[in-house]
Design a protein around this nucleic acid. Structure first.
Lengths: 329, 329
DNA sequence: CCGATTCAGTGAACCGTTTCACTTTATATG
DNA sequence: CATATAAAGTGAAACGGTTCACTGAATCGG
């Protein structure tokens, strides 16, 4: 019901200064016109409380100053931390992030990605659910795309911050083996239509190489869902877990506590993607750490450069680090 | 550099169907025209891969289908959970959320709120940093605003989900007193320019009423920052804490561990705003719980109704519940 | 059979910018 | 001094839809 108070338009500023709308437009962006005129326009604009309408601007220019961030699954605390970090870092670059959540669903990922493009975001950061989707090639044609996590198959992206998941998985599985675990459950995030993610493939390969007996189980990343799955897996007799997200490992903690099982005496848990909370648990969650701040900085640097028209492709490979804290025993 | 592949416009669909652009526009929204025409237009649109440009649509109609969500401080894990929940709930209503983070800064809150209005969001959910800002009255004039947490002073909002902070604070402080703590530090979120939030005011009043000796200290909600402040406060001799956000309480856990102090034997900690992780810690964090799912549902219901033009104001008061888990002793 | 009403559809203005191609005026060059 | 060049500014056409006021035909009641 509320009717928007009429805002000043560029034409009114033009009228007030005796210039054409075109000149005002240029002046406000500090182009084309004399310093003196710029100053005059600025003053008049301030006077009238004029501010350019972002929607009209976007329609006319095709640019918005907004960076899209498409998260694979915001249920994951690590991804939440990443999203918040990126949002703040972008703010420091005088841009802002439009954060969307694919909720682990490739179909939704496609919809949202297109929506973001239609919203004229200047560039897109994506943490792909399905890195092999043809979508990415299509999208990279029309705007700079930066991927985090996995490389986007067949797409000429503007850059990527990839995790050396092969190394990460090896680190994790070797640690478990070194502590004498041979049989274990691998809890991997639920995906609506399970694309064969590179990381998942590595797990199978590495497990085979190390002679481990693994069972792969998918689990949601929200605490209650993860706890439920962990409980079922405990009931199935498993006492060692490699969780492909710290969020899921938290579920193992909860389920173990419910059953009166102690970590690490009765149950071994290994996480992945170090989340700030992981060090606070008792015992601390042993996990694979990726330097989230570094990732944020790298991704933002790349995406801002790309949005500004810089075409040099940057590829950063993030090395994992084992953070042994005592949950494996 | 990438040049957008030309997309079909409404005029091309008009050409293809032999109708006017106006009719196509109506047909695609299922208004004004005959069933048969609607079907014909749908088919042609699908054929051409036509999809309405949201920017152009927003400019012409002033509506976008997007709900803005302005968070007070996304560093707070509880607010993160709330944001994710709202995002998902809105998705289930075929809308989506534009999530922004005021980072505890009233000035930034003002900027972002205006930006959101300029982006033509259909409605706004806000978790105010400064509920007394005149901004809210201004904003409520031009679009439906729903507040979460505190009521917005002097604004005719579309609805609100307020927390009974008076009751929550009383619950927390009485619990601490009942367990024999008289002197304590109150750790409250950092705010750039500290407006006197109702909740903060209650703390002082209630502490006085209960005869407690409190010292108010502001702390960031990010784990490292909170830990630092907690450490300083421990150094200052405090051994009991009422933290105005579970996120901050986590910092007390970390700082206590660093100093070899045990919770609850050496240090008592009380949180606020139950976060899923709080139950996982050892000992579990005693805190005040607000039923986050209920809040999400209520806020989304109100905001969707308001965006759809429903003008009935809804006010929901959320009652707190003490979740005693053992961190107070 | 007539006037009033409804229904399907249309033309053109409009939303508020940006940007292209162009004019006018001033300055530098030879 | 004539001419080339640059600088400052302009008019009008986009951008891609929506919506208002209107037309013409069909339907209705009496």
């Amino acid at each position: 019901m509320p009717q928007p108070r009429k805002r000043a338009t560029i034409r009114e500023v033009a009228k007030a200064t005796g210039l054409s709308p075109a000149s005002v437009s240029y002046a406000l962006r500090g182009m084309q016109v004399s310093e003196e005129t710029i100053e005059r326009v600025r003053r008049a604009a301030a006077e009238l409380g004029y501010e350019a309408d972002p929607i009209a601007r976007a329609l006319a220019s095709g640019r918005t100053g907004v960076i899209g961030l498409l998260c694979g699954s915001l249920e994951d605390l690590w991804q939440q931390a990443l999203a918040v970090g990126i949002g703040r870092a972008l703010k420091d670059n005088d841009r802002y992030a439009l954060i969307l959540d694919a909720a682990g669903d490739p179909a939704r990922e496609r919809t949202l990605a297109r929506q973001l493009r239609d919203q004229r975001v200047d560039a897109l950061i994506v943490q792909p659910v399905d890195p092999a989707a043809p979508l990415w090639a299509e999208l990279s044609e029309s705007l700079p795309v930066v991927s985090i996590g996995d490389a986007l198959a067949g797409a000429r992206t503007a850059g990527e911050v990839v995790f050396d998941n092969r190394a990460g998985v090896t680190l994790a599985l070797e640690h478990l083996r070194d502590r004498g675990r041979r049989r274990m459950a691998v809890l991997t995030p639920t995906r609506a239509s399970t694309p064969d993610r590179p990381a998942d493939v590595h797990v199978m390969a590495e497990a085979a190489r190390l002679g481990l007996d693994i069972e792969v189980v998918t689990a949601p990343q929200a605490l209650t869902g993860a706890t439920e799955v962990a409980d079922r897996t405990l009931a199935g007799g498993h006492r060692a877990f490699f969780c492909f997200a710290d969020s899921i490992a938290y579920g193992v903690y909860a389920a173990s506590a419910d059953r009166g099982l102690r970590i690490p005496d009765d149950v071994s848990v290994m996480g992945y993607d170090d989340h700030p909370m992981s060090g606070l648990l008792t015992p601390g969650l042993t996990t694979v750490d990726w330097d989230i701040d570094g990732i944020v900085r790298a991704a933002v640097r790349i995406v801002v450069a790309a949005a500004d028209g810089n075409t040099r492709r940057r590829r950063i490979v993030q090395a994992p680090e084992l953070r042994a804290r005592g949950s494996v025993g």
